[in-house]
């Protein structure tokens, strides 16, 4: 494992820690999109079906279980925790996220890695992850008051995707010299969706201003 990949995984993990920290310490999920979190549950469960069929390493298995477990926990807090659920920005979190699922599934059937159940679902999870942030970005645009932890969460999530691209470039030259269209193009799309957010996040950080996204 190279340093970019490790940094990407750690950034991803840190983003989840930040989100859980916000939820548990402030007892609030204001500004967090339940739609995006639900999509992540689907992404992780469909991607990590190979937990049952293939052992790669302790690190790999532990991370997969952490990603599945924390995404389910976050949705649990937002839907069922009696205090936290009352802080959910329900009226602003209106993206019809279920509409993203059929096109991603059809795309996975048309362009799977291999035509087997696990590889089709893996491809589906890659396509769905690429667009899963959209409800969250829309919610941020609609929020007049984005708190620091929410801003940091989305920034770390975007940084994780950017680091994965660097990891692929590094692996291409040092290991395989093989082209991997499905994750590369999906990963580029996913990272590009954060471009606008990154711009305003870094600008607000440099100017010591509160983060606001223009609608």
């Amino acid at each position: 494992m190279n340093i970019f990949r490790l940094a990407g995984d750690m950034t991803h993990l840190l983003s989840i820690v930040v989100l859980l920290l916000k939820i548990r310490t402030t007892k609030s999920c204001a500004g967090i999109s339940l739609k995006t979190q639900e999509l992540y549950v689907i992404v992780f469960i469909t991607r990590y079906l190979d937990l049952f069929t293939r052992y790669v390493s302790f690190y790999n298995t532990a991370m997969k279980l952490v990603f599945i477990g924390t995404s389910v926990a976050i949705v649990w807090y937002m839907r069922l925790h009696k205090v936290v659920k009352q802080t959910y920005s329900r009226d602003e979190d209106t993206f019809k996220h279920y509409l993203l699922i059929p096109p991603c599934f059809i795309l996975a059937l048309l362009i799977p890695l291999e035509f087997t159940v696990t590889e089709i679902l893996w491809s589906f999870s890659i396509y769905l992850e690429a667009v899963a942030i959209l409800p969250q970005l829309l919610l941020l645009q609609r929020s007049s008051n984005i708190d620091n932890l929410t801003g940091s969460y989305v920034f770390l999530l975007g940084a994780y995707r950017a680091l994965y691209i660097v990891n692929w470039v590094y692996r291409f030259f040092t290991e395989t010299h093989k082209i991997r269209w499905i994750p590369w193009i999906s990963g580029l799309v996913q990272t590009a969706l954060y471009a606008d957010f990154f711009y305003y996040y870094i600008k607000s950080w440099k100017n010591h201003e509160k983060l606001r996204l223009p609608a």
């Binding site: 991803h12 790669v56 890695l113 893996w122 991997r180 499905i182």
Partner: peptide
């Protein structure tokens, strides 16, 4: 002809 995925990636 997509290459098989590296199974070590998350």
């Amino acid at each position: 002809n997509e290459q098989p995925r590296p199974h070590d990636e998350l």
